[in-house]
Design a protein around this nucleic acid. Sequence first.
DNA 1: ACGTTGTTGCGATCTGATCGCAACAACGAT
DNA 2: ATCGTTGTTGCGATCAGATCGCAACAACGT
Lengths: 172, 172
Amino acid sequence: MGVDVTTEEVLQQMRAAGGRVTAQRRAVLDALAATQPHPSVEDVAAYVQRSDPDIHLSTVYRTLNTLTEIGVVSHVHLDHGRSVYHFTHDDEPHLVCRSCSAVSHLETATFTHVRRIVADATGFDLEHGHFAWSARCPACRGEAAAAGRSEPASSHEHPAPTGAAGPADDGP
Amino acid sequence: MGVDVTTEEVLQQMRAAGGRVTAQRRAVLDALAATQPHPSVEDVAAYVQRSDPDIHLSTVYRTLNTLTEIGVVSHVHLDHGRSVYHFTHDDEPHLVCRSCSAVSHLETATFTHVRRIVADATGFDLEHGHFAWSARCPACRGEAAAAGRSEPASSHEHPAPTGAAGPADDGP
DNA sequence: ACGTTGTTGCGATCTGATCGCAACAACGAT
DNA sequence: ATCGTTGTTGCGATCAGATCGCAACAACGT
């Protein structure tokens, strides 16, 4: 993704919006920039607390919410009770593998195409964010195929903590 | 998807799977059949408890889970911490209006079309269930468009179901 | 440097969902 | 019809993700 939203830029945005620049917020932004493309709240908190263990989870939540309001980040619900965050500038529809939790996203052009199809058929105007589309990533599809059978629900169950980047990464 | 899954049929399925037929399960199935197309757990519980207040919420959850395992019903996550259930035989991708929470779904043909587009672009194989696609329903889109008009735009219920036959495309 | 006011830390709280356990009941066997 | 096995239920405890209230704290315009 080309546009680089630097931490400082965002902090200026926050200040412009009447907010204040704090070490905690700086840390959260750093975490977002440093962590994998789709960190969960816990991922962010863990990263942040590595440099300052006193930063409270609530603060991470609140900062993330603030950033969401400002429009800098968005979050996507992956599964019941789990959501991941990402900078809005790459706010494209997310695909999440239901087997391994790998996350990817749709290119804008493709999404536009799909969006029109859905609009024509239902009148609903798809939104690109907030919810992930459940899918199976190429790797897991391969496994299923190699398994010889349409894989029943048993092979791999609970996906690894969001830390584990799946086989499929989202390209630029 | 013309198959009509009657309560008794499903109960037989459960029995065949080694389970037992209880009044509570019958009640939950009745609720699913009687309630709106996309009842939440609470909806189901409320309906069930109208005829038997002693049926516990846990039982509703457990029954719903059991039915899910058997493949009779599926649930879709609408928003953080809220999911709705429906019979699997109409297990199509769900669209939920981010403004008014109206739920609709995509016809199979349309979904198939979209699915192929996404697979071509990303390699991910979309799944039809489990997650709702965030969108804006026609009613809310209209309101947005008319913003500035003198129309309060207060009441709109369920949008026109996905009756409209889209581009009857088809594919693998 | 000061005061206003947004933020933080912390624990309490809320909601959706699951779990452990003893009592209970479905249903195949007798 | 009765019995025993074993799946289910009711209930409260519990879990996890997320939010909230409040007092202490600190950013930053003046």
